[in-house]
Design a binder for these strands. Structure first.
Lengths: 246, 246
DNA sequence: GAGTGGTCTAGACCACATT
DNA sequence: ATGTGGTCTAGACCACTCA
């Protein structure tokens, strides 16, 4: 039971990628080349390349070729507590160009709808109670990176700018504060899995790219839940950070 | 350019899984069955099943069959702030049996080593300065779920139980507190990607299972970094939670 | 032993990008 | 026009599980 040829080929290529022999953007040897070099059938060479694609290491383009993917993560900071100096010692262990690129919204909608069951429990509402639903897709450099759907009790936010596409300066949380429901605490629950086809489509995900699901709960004074925000992130584009006290 | 047969088959099966028609643990139609039902070649049927496996939805076992995977996550809580009542309204949107199963450690080592470059910066040390390195693998119900490697400045922890396999009651942080370096703040940086073969091996990962990489930085008073902990989690087994103030 | 998934081959046709 | 990746087929052999 020696490792099968397609795995050996994949292992070779992977090592070359991780060693930097094939840097980000470099063209990976084509199927035909692999067929010659390793003396295997075309399908076997394809399978080797498919392994790397499934690992998120490469990206194949029909007609062009297969290239090594590059990673330029967006830094998502939550619960920032520490000062800039403390950021200095204690910075990322991942060497990343954490440039702050501007984020845009390309498709958005705001609707009042009956509350879905799983959200109702979190908001302390009955299933089907009216909630305002804010739906958005975020882009960086023209490419989608995150989907977000936010739920707020209709009774709480009726008449405010939260029910309009443009929620105004400071956004939803600023409006909540004006209504006397300023968020004081947040809980974020995080799951990770491979995307469903619809998610892969909406985020234009390459093969081998997981998604991060974040459910964010915002609480006002006395622990009153005021918002649930379900987010879906392209995992290959994010470096997430949380800070909290001991 | 209609969707190719293998995708149609995969779509059919995926819908049946997500609809609950094929519940967790259920046997997915075998290659032979699919060959008959859809009148395709065996390789085409295989490819359809491979899609589902790559999505983490199924698990194939040679000789046995392909089954729908089940999701029984471990809840990992960080920065717990809110009370139990607030947990009540605002609970998970993912219906999950969050039983607290006991966690064991099966392989552990403690060594003094020169500090790797990427850790040195975070700990405010020179590269190569002596650090104690605590290495562990965690199991739940006999299966590995997390790898963790912790780095502490040798000068800070020399002579304490931190340098021994059994760090004593309360663990590393309790010992740090006794030494006058009680952690007061934490920063956790999180990345997600598909595993390298070595990681897949160490965590016994099925196909289509991402890993979560958490780099945890512990700070004592005045923002002095006292520990860096690099963790690798089986993404399919964790539900992570962070809480923090506005 | 029958059925299951895992791998490989040789050959074919297609869609697409680059030259 | 050539080369690239994407898909499909028919047939083969193997390793494993389960009854």
């Amino acid at each position: 039971m020696p490792t099968p040829p397609y795995r050996r080929i994949a292992d070779d290529l992977r090592r070359r990628i991780l060693d930097g022999d094939l840097p980000p953007g470099a063209v990976v040897p084509s199927e035909n080349v692999l067929v010659e070099q390793y003396e295997v059938a075309a399908e076997t060479a394809r399978r080797a390349l498919a392994v790397l694609a499934a690992e998120g290491l490469t990206e194949a383009r029909r007609g062009s070729g297969t290239r090594v993917r590059s990673f330029r993560p967006i830094l998502r900071q939550a619960g920032r507590r520490l000062s800039a100096e403390q950021w200095g010692s204690g910075r990322s262990v991942w060497q990343a160009d954490l440039d702050q690129r501007p984020m845009a919204v390309d498709s958005a909608s705001v609707d009042q709808r009956p509350c879905p069951g799983r959200i109702a429990g979190a908001l302390g509402l009955e299933e089907g109670a009216p909630v305002w639903v804010r739906d958005r897709r975020y882009l960086v450099e023209g490419a989608p990176v995150m989907l977000a759907t936010s739920y707020l009790p209709a009774e709480m936010v009726a008449g405010s700018a939260i029910t309009r596409l443009d929620s105004g300066p400071g956004g939803t949380y600023a409006r909540l504060a004006e209504l006397g429901w300023a968020p004081t605490d947040f809980r974020e629950q995080v799951r990770v899995r491979m995307p469903l086809p619809e998610e892969a489509l909406a985020l234009a995900l390459g093969a081998g790219t997981p998604v991060v699901l974040i459910a964010r709960f915002a609480f006002a004074r006395d622990g009153v839940p005021v918002e649930v925000n379900e987010m879906t992130l392209d995992a290959s584009r994010y470096l997430m950070e949380w800070e909290f006290p001991a």
